[in-house]
């Protein structure tokens, strides 16, 4: 029993480590390298799934799925965070739990288990996503992509609202509550970023469409 837990902890640690690398990789994205970076990140994430999530899936049967959750949840949360971050950067939408579980269907052969991500790990992983989106928003403003910050802001707002309506009901509501607070902090940082961009823009071009100026600025560089 302890060996199984041991193996899950190790697999989870690897899932975390390599998922973090995918996230770091996606952060290197800018307007020039977008496609190549995303393709590479997609390949890397697929490898995390095949090489390491499979190791998790292989161990879990019946009630073990919940029994050992503490052992593998950190890895799965980080995987969700990475996958959802990548999906947002590619398609600007929220990766759903069904999307993820469909993508795990192919693990069945390798793990000989019908592995399904549970709702809690999904929600907790999605909760962490906001932190990465906050970093992305700030660096996209730095890179001159003001619109991107605005759309991140709207995305996070709606995500926060959806989660706030169910967060109280989540199993470990204390853990979720913590995440909600961090999420709100991140959201406020994104809003502050949008605020700064707006106020600075308004000074020079009251009412103007900011993109033009920003576009011009991009050419300068």
């Amino acid at each position: 029993m302890y060996e199984k837990r041991e193996r899950l902890v190790k697999a989870s640690r690897d899932v975390t480590m390599y998922s973090k690398k995918v996230i770091f990789q996606v952060h290197r994205l800018n307007s020039k390298n977008k496609e190549s970076v995303l393709e590479q990140a997609e390949r890397d994430l697929a490898n995390v799934k095949m090489d390491h999530v499979t190791r998790v899936a292989k161990e879990l049967q019946g009630s073990e799925f919940w029994k050992f959750r503490r052992a593998y949840t950190p890895g799965m949360q980080e995987y969700v965070e990475a996958a959802a971050f990548l999906e947002f950067c590619k398609n600007g939408r929220l990766l759903t739990l069904d999307d993820l579980n469909e993508s795990f269907a192919e693990l069945k052969d390798a793990s000989s288990n019908d592995f399904q991500l549970n709702l809690l790990d999904y929600l907790l992983g999605v909760g962490d996503l906001t932190g990465e989106l906050m970093r992305l928003a700030i660096s996209s403003v730095t890179d001159g992509e003001v619109d991107s910050a605005k759309s991140i802001c709207n995305f996070v707002r709606s995500l926060y609202m959806s989660l706030s309506l169910i967060s109280q009901e989540v199993d470990d509501s204390w853990e979720m509550k913590q995440k909600m607070e961090v999420m709100l902090q991140s959201l406020m940082k994104i809003e502050n970023t949008c605020y700064t961009v707006h106020v600075r823009g308004s000074e020079y071009f009251p009412g103007a469409v900011l993109e033009n100026i920003e576009g011009q600025r991009m050419e300068d560089n």
Binding site: N154, R157, Y160, M161, S164, L165, Q168, E191
Partner: peptide, 17 residues
Amino acid sequence: LDSATRLMQAQLLLIHH
């Protein structure tokens, strides 16, 4: 009471948007 205030708070979020 908890449910009622939680619902109100969620609706109040829209005010920020």
